[in-house]
């Protein structure tokens, strides 16, 4: 299974998110340290779930990092995370 799909699957299983967008940003980092041919190194996750209610930013990120520990220990070199609870109105957009 491609890494992006595996990340989506694991986050869905762990957090039953009401919103989940997983992007493979590897092409943006081509040639940069940590990138490699074939990509699948740099990802961003935008996730909204009840599971994050009342959690601090660090706690939310730790929850995501733990759910994806295998990926982070393997080929995933960078993971940008926006994690929010539904009442936050979703993560801030830039």
């Amino acid at each position: 299974m491609e890494t992006r799909a595996r990340i989506s699957e694991k986050l869905t299983a762990a957090f039953a998110p009401v919103r989940l967008v997983v992007q493979d940003d590897s092409h943006l980092h081509a040639g940069h340290a940590g990138s490699r041919p074939g990509g699948e190194t740099h990802f961003s996750v935008d996730i909204v779930s009840e599971a994050f209610r009342g959690k601090s930013r660090i706690e939310r990120h730790r929850m995501v990092n733990i759910a994806l520990a295998e990926e982070l220990a393997g080929g995933v070199h960078a993971l940008a995370i926006q994690a929010a609870a539904p009442e936050d109105g979703g993560p801030a957009r830039e």
Binding site: R57, I58, H61, R62, N65, L72, L79, A80, I81, A92
Partner: peptide
Amino acid sequence: SKWPTIPQLYVKGEFVGGCDIIREMFQ
């Protein structure tokens, strides 16, 4: 830090966060 990614910011001995958290906190 029990944190899998770099960068990591510490203030007065306390772990504050990585890039996304620092940016959100700054904003």
